[in-house]
């Protein structure tokens, strides 16, 4: 997927996922919430976004 964001936080904004609580994994590791604005994205990064679900 082609994205234009530089940081993880910007990416969540670009994907309109920054207003719902979600866990974000970058290359197999969970990125702490507070680090999202500092994590710079590189070509080929594998990003997984998991949104919390409340049903059951």
């Amino acid at each position: 997927m082609d994205v234009c964001s530089d940081t993880l936080e910007d990416l969540l904004g670009e994907l309109q996922r920054n207003d719902t609580p979600c866990a974000v994994e970058r290359n197999g590791e969970l990125v702490p919430w507070r680090s999202r604005s500092q994590v710079r994205l590189s070509e080929g990064d594998c990003i997984e976004i998991v949104t919390m679900v409340g049903g059951g």
């Binding site: 998991v50 919390m52 679900v53 409340g54 049903g55 059951g56």
Partner: peptide, 9 residues
Amino acid sequence: AGAIGTEGL
């Protein structure tokens, strides 16, 4: 644990 639609955690 939680579930919605076709997905669960």
